[in-house]
Amino acid sequence: MEVTIQKAVLAAVTDDLSKVSGVPAFLAEDDASRQKKALYLSRILQGAVHDLGNGVLIVVKH
């Protein structure tokens, strides 16, 4: 059986690194590049992307 981590924030993509702490965070200034990075991360980590508002996207494994 495959063992995976579930219900955990795997990564965050943000426009300001001070808004995120404790998880791997990626800096992306504008909206388009944030979307692009989040898309790649979600496909790589097999997680869903959620928008926390204020320019922070998180990738969560469900």
Binding site: Q35, A38, L39, S42, A48, V49, H50, D51, L57, I58
Partner: peptide
């Protein structure tokens, strides 16, 4: 609605990706 997905008036989840 924004990043929120609803069915009727019931909230399902939030999707961050514009494409999705």
């Amino acid at each position: 609605r924004g990043s929120d997905v609803l069915v009727g008036d019931i909230f399902i989840f939030s999707v961050g990706l514009k494409e999705s």
